[in-house]
Amino acid sequence: MTTALITGATSGIGAAFARRLASDGHNVVLVARDPERLRDQATELHDRHGVEAEVLRADLSTDKGIAAVEERVADRTHPVDLLVNNAGFGNKGNYLDVPMAEELTMLKVHCEAVLRLTSAAAASMRERGRGGVVNVASVAAFVPRGTYGASKAWIVQFTQGAARDLAGNGVRLMALCPGFVRTEFHGRAGMGTGNIPSWMWLDADKLVDAALRDLARGKSLSIPDPRYKTLMGIAKLTPRGALSRVTSSTGRKYGPQ
């Protein structure tokens, strides 16, 4: 049986990955900050699917938390075959409205943790000649929308570059770029969502199904929905200045308040 490690595993996209991978027969390592939710989730997955469900409490906004997960994904005796870097969060407010400490924490979780965990896992996977990494980014990576979008753009560029460097080594890396997904993400950031059109919302379980299909096909980038594929295709063809104006105005109109 193979083992998958998922960060941010107790809710949203991370929980959907954990459910799907456990149902497919993979042992799972669940990483999050809340020990009670981790224990409850591990018990449920073990009892329902008969897999081993290991818990690892770690705060990826700290060096100690990142190092703990690094050590686990680099373990050669109990190897991780699939890493899902899903942990992340949003900040409410425009540039200069968000405290610098919170901006730096976002970069720690979205960039430094992803870099360190991907590198630790990929090195071990390359030795074995097999493995995969899914780094959860966002369609915000393709539009100019502040630190969140910039950090997700970094994930996309890093993942695709690393995927090219590891081509032929049996290790697959993929950046996953969903749009709005019904999770706890917006509530935790204090963002309202009542103004977001219903057609823009995605289901986490369906998103994971599409992502795993794209990973199996060897894609380094996954935008797992035709609606968002179309929107991102239009964005690529739009001049940068015009795109910035459009995303700024639509962000105020449809973005979380």
Rank of each mutant, 00 (worst) to 15 (best):
A140G: 10
S61L: 12
V109E: 08
A204W: 04
W199R: 06
T230N: 03
H186W: 09
P79L: 02
I196Y: 11
I234C: 09
D24K: 07
V51I: 15
G25I: 15
A204V: 04
L231K: 00
G161Y: 03
G65E: 08
L215F: 11
T77G: 01
G194I: 14
W154S: 05
R145V: 14
L5M: 10
R182L: 11
D209Q: 12
R188Q: 10
G218E: 08
I234W: 12
R245F: 10
P256Q: 09
T250L: 15
F185H: 02
T62L: 02
A210S: 14
V114Y: 04
T118H: 02
M106S: 02
D40V: 11
N195W: 13
M125W: 01
R188C: 06
A58P: 00
M232S: 06
D214S: 10
A175C: 08
P197H: 06
P226H: 13
G65Y: 12
V246K: 14
D203H: 11
M106L: 14
W154A: 15
R39I: 01
G129V: 12
T105G: 15
G88R: 05
P197E: 04
D214P: 02
G93F: 05
G50P: 08
G161A: 05
D47V: 14
M174N: 03
A216C: 04
L38Y: 00
A137H: 07
D165V: 12
E103N: 11
R57V: 15
A137R: 05
P256T: 09
V139S: 03
N169H: 13
D209H: 12
G179T: 10
V246N: 05
R240I: 09
T193V: 15
A137Y: 07
V134K: 01
V73C: 05
L173C: 08
R164S: 09
R126A: 15
L83P: 03
L107Q: 11
L166E: 04
R130Q: 14
G131L: 07
D203G: 08
N27D: 15
R164Q: 14
T159F: 08
T62P: 03
G25C: 03
L215H: 10
V69W: 01
G241Q: 14
L243H: 07
S244N: 11
P226N: 07
S248M: 13
E70V: 07
V171A: 10
F142I: 10
D203M: 10
L21N: 06
E112P: 01
H46C: 13
S198Q: 13
V28W: 03
E127H: 10
R48K: 07
N94S: 13
V134C: 05
G251L: 03
G170S: 08
V80Q: 00
F158C: 02
A32T: 05
M232V: 15
D97L: 13
L202Y: 01
R116N: 12
T62D: 06
G132R: 04
G168E: 11
V143K: 06
A68V: 04
M1N: 07
G149K: 14
G146F: 00
A101N: 12
G8F: 05
A189P: 02
Q257K: 15
D209W: 04
D24V: 04
S222A: 14
H110E: 06
V73I: 14
L30G: 00
K219L: 13
G12S: 09
N27P: 00
F142Q: 09
A162Y: 12
A9W: 02
F17L: 06
A113L: 07
